[in-house]
Simulated scan of single mutants.
Amino acid sequence: MYLTAGYAYLNIPTESNGTKLNRTEHRPWMQMVANHELTGRWTMINRVRYDMRYRQNFTNGELLNDFDFTNRLRLLIGLRYHFEEQRIFSGTPYINLSNEVLVNFGENIITNHFNQNRTWLTLGLQLETVSFQIGYMNRFVKLSQNQRFERNHTLVVWISQRFDFRKKQIPSDDDEHFYQIP
């Protein structure tokens, strides 16, 4: 299990009074991920992510200079199959099937607790610290501006970089790979 945090800057298309707008969103987030090895090739992924969403307000077809704040919780479960016998660019290819439910919460959320459901199927490549994924996402979302539902079929491309900021362990004198002064 591991904890991570990050920040996303988004420019999200929306509509107000028939005018198409690109709404800015600032989204700091933190998450807890647990990978469970089911067999040598199958892994189950569980993730809980908390999004702090600062979304630009709009009215009457115009963007405003202020932002509202909402909380969002994202619950993901995924199943990944690793093609261990195949190597591409010194990495392991995999196929991934995931489902994620996103819910809004907090005192300013009155009617729209359900935010969206995302289901995707991707092909990926895991290198030492970078993973690449490409695939299909089916997104079922409740639109806030008119309280209707919409289904989107989307091509997704993800590139994820893992950084390890832990202190590296210094090998002991007993370590046979450690160079010792003669």
Rank of each mutant, 00 (worst) to 15 (best):
Y2D: 13
Y2K: 11
T14G: 07
T19S: 10
L21K: 05
L21V: 09
R27A: 11
P28Y: 01
A34K: 11
E37N: 15
L38N: 01
G40R: 13
R41H: 09
M44S: 14
V48P: 07
Y50E: 13
D51W: 05
Y54M: 14
R55M: 13
R55D: 02
N57T: 14
D66G: 02
D66Q: 02
D68C: 03
F69M: 04
N71E: 04
I77P: 12
G78C: 06
R80S: 05
R87M: 05
G91V: 00
P93Q: 12
I95T: 03
L97N: 06
N99H: 09
E100N: 07
L102G: 04
N108S: 07
T111W: 06
H113C: 00
F114I: 11
F114D: 03
N115W: 00
Q116E: 04
T119M: 14
T122N: 11
L127M: 12
T129Y: 07
V130P: 06
S131N: 15
F132G: 12
I134Y: 00
I134E: 00
M137Y: 02
M137T: 12
N138I: 01
F140L: 13
V141P: 06
L143T: 07
S144A: 14
Q145H: 08
N146L: 10
R148M: 06
F163W: 13
F165T: 13
D174H: 14
P182M: 12
